[in-house]
């Protein structure tokens, strides 16, 4: 028996954990970490389906590259928001971030 069904299950479980983290935590950076976890779960699912296909073509690679690009973009966004929040003396509690413009 191959590990493919288990790998798909692992991806689903990691995605669910990330979703729980996003919806339950209030710290800005922890929420971003949970989103990174959801992106990693997506990569597991993509690689699982890529490995299971007999003629995968380029779509799996393109999907994986897209997710890596989104993950890198998220890191850039987090570092800029961190500096901005610190510079304005605001809280990292997302329930208190109620203004879109300082």
């Amino acid at each position: 028996m191959t590990i493919l069904p288990y790998a798909i299950g692992l991806g689903a479980v990691l995605f669910a954990i990330g979703l729980a983290g996003v919806s339950s935590d209030r710290h800005f950076i922890v929420i971003m970490l949970a989103i990174e976890l959801m992106l990693a779960a997506s990569t597991i699912l993509i690689v699982s389906f890529f490995s299971s296909s007999s003629s995968p073509g380029s779509i799996g690679v393109m999907a994986l590259l897209s997710i890596w690009a989104v993950a890198a973009t998220e890191v850039i966004t987090v570092i800029s928001f961190y500096v901005y929040i610190k510079a304005n003396g605001a809280s990292f509690d997302v329930t208190k971030l109620n203004r879109l413009k300082w």
Binding site: I29, A71, A72
Partner: peptide
């Protein structure tokens, strides 16, 4: 890719 991203998070 993710070690690069995580090093940024580590710095934060």
């Amino acid at each position: 890719v993710f070690v690069g991203g995580l090093s940024t998070y580590l710095m934060v």
